[in-house]
Structure formats: structure tokens, C-alpha cells
Computed example of a mutant assay.
Amino acid sequence: MIRVLIADDEPMVRAGIRSILTADADIHIVADAADGRTAVEQARRHRPDVAVLDIRMPGVDGLTATRQIRADLPETAVIILTTFGEDEYIARALDYGAAGFLLKALDPRELIAGVHAVASGAACLSPVVAQRVITELRRSGPSRGQAARTRVAALAPRERDVLALVGSGLSNADIAKRLHLVEGTVKTYVSAILSRLEIRNRVQAAIIAVEAGLVDHPSKE
């Protein structure tokens, strides 16, 4: 059972998200909130597997709530759900540790799939967001790619294998199957990769994998 917290300042939106997610028998809503501060408090109380947060909320916004939740509860994955697709929001959300960034104008099935993805240790980006990331990487030029290759070169061969699969959007379970490892070993590898590369989350790891040429593009999940 995936335990989920919802935060949005519009009651109808919260009701809609709840209705969508509870249509999946494997998802259970543990709490909801109308602002970022309450979302953080509820997250600390219920320790959900996934928090689905709106960006623009009164008081503490979704991005600040993301940073606080990830700092206090590193096992809680955060999905930013918003109508805004500006690059500044994407960059900040990922920098603060969000595992997913989805636009509200999506198929409900994408939201359910996104919750499952981040709960299993993968990342999820709306196709529009993934394309923005790809575009930014293409603009970054060869110097950024060289820097990524230098960073990746410090990893052990098996760590590079795992990083490539993280960059392809695979969950820990899928990586374990692909590399014939147990899931706990993959989790250890991912933690080591994040530490060695001095990054905070799998999305940042995926970006480095793309920049280093380990995969063609980040996952659109």
C-alpha cells in the first residue's frame, strides 16, 4: 500500500486528486492540506511514502514545503503537481529534492503511474518537463558534458551501470532485475552514487547520466 499526502489550496482540486488516486487499490490517502505549512506538519505526523504538492499555496509554498519534507523525511518522495511549467519552477523543484514534476493538465493515469514510480524509487517527469530538461542539456554545450563525464569517471564500473539505468528511469526493482542483483544492493549503489556525485536525488543523477552520454535522454515517466 502506497501512503500518500495531498496538498493544494483549492478544495475541488484536492477532491479531484483524491478521487483519481483512490481509484487505485494500492494507494491510500493518509492526509490532505490546504497550505504548505500544514503539509509539512501532516507529513511529519503521518510519514507518507509520497507527497503530492501544489506549487502555489498560501504561506509556505509547495517548493519550500518540498525542501522541508525532504530534509525531515528523506524516505518520503515528493511530486510537484502544478499548472505552471516555467523552467525556474522545474529547476527549483528538482534542486529541493522533488522526485517528480507533473503538470495538472495530464491524463489521470499519468498521476497514478507517477505515484507508483516515485514510491518505487524512480523519478517521473511530464513529457513537457522532460523536453525542457533535454533542451537545457542541449544548450549546455560540450563543457557541461565533459564535466559530467569527469564526475562519472570517478564511479566504479557497476556504479556507472546503475547510474545509466537510473538515467533511463528504471526503479530500484527494475534495475535489480536488469543487473541480476537484489533490490537492497541496488539501493546501496544508488546511495553511494548520490554521495560520490554530491547530488540530492535521482532526477539530478539522471541528468548527469544524460550529460555524460550514458543514456540518450531522461525518462518521460
Results as ranks from 00 to 15, higher is better:
179 L>V: 05
172 N>S: 14
112 I>M: 02
143 S>P: 00
147 A>Y: 09
88 E>K: 10
164 A>S: 08
128 V>S: 06
146 Q>T: 00
105 A>F: 07
85 G>Y: 11
160 R>A: 14
105 A>H: 05
106 L>C: 05
113 A>S: 12
144 R>Y: 10
137 L>M: 14
117 A>Q: 15
84 F>Y: 15
177 K>M: 13
119 A>E: 01
127 P>V: 11
113 A>V: 10
151 R>Y: 00
140 S>P: 04
109 R>S: 14
179 L>C: 07
90 I>S: 03
87 D>H: 14
166 V>T: 12
144 R>G: 09
154 A>F: 00
83 T>P: 02
134 I>V: 15
106 L>S: 11
121 G>S: 01
168 S>F: 00
179 L>T: 05
177 K>W: 09
130 A>D: 03
179 L>H: 04
148 A>S: 01
86 E>T: 04
119 A>N: 01
143 S>T: 11
87 D>M: 15
172 N>H: 12
144 R>F: 07
81 L>N: 06
145 G>L: 01
84 F>R: 08
109 R>P: 00
179 L>D: 06
175 I>D: 08
168 S>M: 10
137 L>W: 00
131 Q>H: 11
125 L>W: 03
173 A>L: 13
149 R>K: 15
95 D>G: 09
91 A>R: 14
179 L>F: 07
87 D>C: 00
139 R>S: 14
164 A>V: 01
125 L>K: 01
116 H>D: 13
128 V>L: 10
160 R>N: 07
178 R>D: 12
153 A>S: 09
168 S>T: 08
100 G>V: 04
84 F>K: 06
96 Y>F: 14
136 E>K: 13
149 R>M: 15
175 I>K: 01
145 G>M: 12
150 T>I: 10
144 R>E: 15
123 A>S: 12
81 L>Q: 08
171 S>R: 05
176 A>M: 03
129 V>E: 03
118 V>D: 03
99 A>M: 12
119 A>C: 01
164 A>D: 07
136 E>V: 13
117 A>L: 15
175 I>G: 07
94 L>N: 04
146 Q>A: 10
93 A>Q: 03
164 A>R: 05
121 G>W: 04
127 P>A: 07
121 G>A: 01
140 S>Q: 04
83 T>G: 10
166 V>P: 12
175 I>N: 07
163 L>T: 08
153 A>V: 01
96 Y>L: 12
94 L>D: 07
126 S>Q: 05
121 G>P: 03
154 A>M: 12
176 A>S: 03
138 R>I: 13
126 S>R: 02
150 T>Y: 01
161 D>W: 00
122 A>Q: 09
172 N>Y: 13
178 R>W: 04
91 A>M: 13
111 L>E: 06
169 G>C: 04
106 L>H: 07
117 A>T: 13
117 A>I: 08
